[in-house]
Design a protein around this nucleic acid. Structure first.
Lengths: 217, 217
DNA sequence: TAATATTTTTAGTTTTGCCTAAAAATTTAA
DNA sequence: TTAAATTTTTAGGCAAAACTAAAAATATTA
């Protein structure tokens, strides 16, 4: 499989969760920064290889084979992210680009030994689950911070948006995975939330609250 | 730079040491398993980018810029080999293919942090020197085992041929970097050498002796 | 040195993955 | 339910990096 094919599979995999009735050509094009016509070309190719179920104009689905391949790419990506952060001292907002390249190195031995070296981590530096060698994913209960009731205290366990801007915002506010947050007030009008972190008070927008995964105790 | 361009630079770099009066088109084609006509195409491209000095029919040289680029690729390759062996438990005959892929991941931070993580190694698992971040190479005195006089005891410090076949032969004979070897007899007729390793006797061909680097004490 | 052999280059093609522009299908709205 | 808007596909092209076949240059040797 080529790097390009792998990137398509990965994107279709991620979009499948959001649109379970078939992934749109345009949505794929948007994620890959390419044109819809290029996507159509590639969908035909992936279909020929039986990695996707594709009928024109009807959106696309991953086959089991395609899904397993996609999960392995996600596995590679997230394991490399753990490596970069834990072993090489990268910050969580610095790992994405490099992991995009590393994920395409195809070697079973490499990735399984890396997994072992890292002690079989279940989650990457952004809190996303890492599929194991069989493609199994350990999902845990998580809620968005925006869904938490006033006066509850929760722990930050992941981010939905992994953009550099968002991650650096969290750095600035000293929010990281494991940070305990108490919800003090919620503004009905605009969704703004007042929270307490390490006994200091902070007001965050609903956009922030909609991109932070947390767990109740 | 593309992966293909990098592979050409690397091959020209390695061949430059052997043929200092310009590297042949055919030699490059042989190393890259491609056709001479493809090499000519690429030499024009590399010449346009000022990575090589190229005049048709006259062989090719790396420019300073090309040489530095080539060294950085070699640096990447050898650092990854150290990582694979020391951290992920690969054997020295298993690292080449994967390192061929990893060497093309372009990130200064990645490679310099990896270097640090590995404690700034000077040599890779085959005894080849690793260029530092500036492209400087620490060369050490080495001789081929075939050049050593009878009755001398030397230490194995590297291999000239890094093919799987040769490395596995060495594994079988329990020869690795650091192994002490005493030269007992040399056969003038065919270059065969009788040696002593860990008080057991072994006869090796001249081909083996011509591919083992050793240092005298 | 001339003839032959080898090496290298040129010219023209292929494949992959992208593009634009236009046509076709589907969806939305009047 | 037809018209308009949007989405998707088709058709035809382009650039990179390979290829084959033929031409040109260089090297070898008789």
């Amino acid at each position: 499989m080529t790097t390009s094919e792998e990137n398509y599979l990965k994107v279709i995999y991620h979009l499948s969760n959001l649109s379970p009735k078939g992934v749109n050509t345009n949505a794929i094009a948007g994620m890959l920064d390419t044109k819809a016509s290029s996507v159509t070309d590639m969908l035909k190719k992936l279909s020929d290889k039986e990695l996707v179920d594709y009928q024109k104009y009807q959106g696309v689905f991953l086959t089991e084979k395609g899904k397993l391949n996609a999960k392995m790419i996600v596995r590679n990506h997230r394991l490399w992210e753990v490596f970069l952060v834990e072993k090489l001292g990268f910050a969580w907002d610095e790992v994405h680009e490099v992991a995009e390249e590393l994920e395409h190195i195809r070697s079973e031995k490499l990735i399984n030994q890396l997994d072992k070296f890292l002690n079989y981590p279940s989650f990457d530096p952004h809190g996303d689950p890492i599929p194991n060698a069989k493609g199994e994913i350990q999902n845990i209960d998580k809620q968005l911070l925006s869904e938490i009731d006033v006066n509850k205290t929760i722990t930050c366990i992941g981010v939905k948006d992994t953009s550099v801007d968002f991650l650096q915002y969290l750095n600035k506010q000293q929010i990281s995975l494991g940070t305990k947050i108490k919800v003090l007030e919620k503004e009905a009008f605009d969704g703004t939330i007042k929270i307490e972190i390490n006994s200091s008070i902070l007001v965050i927008s609903d956009k922030i609250a909609n991109n932070l995964y947390v767990k109740t105790h």
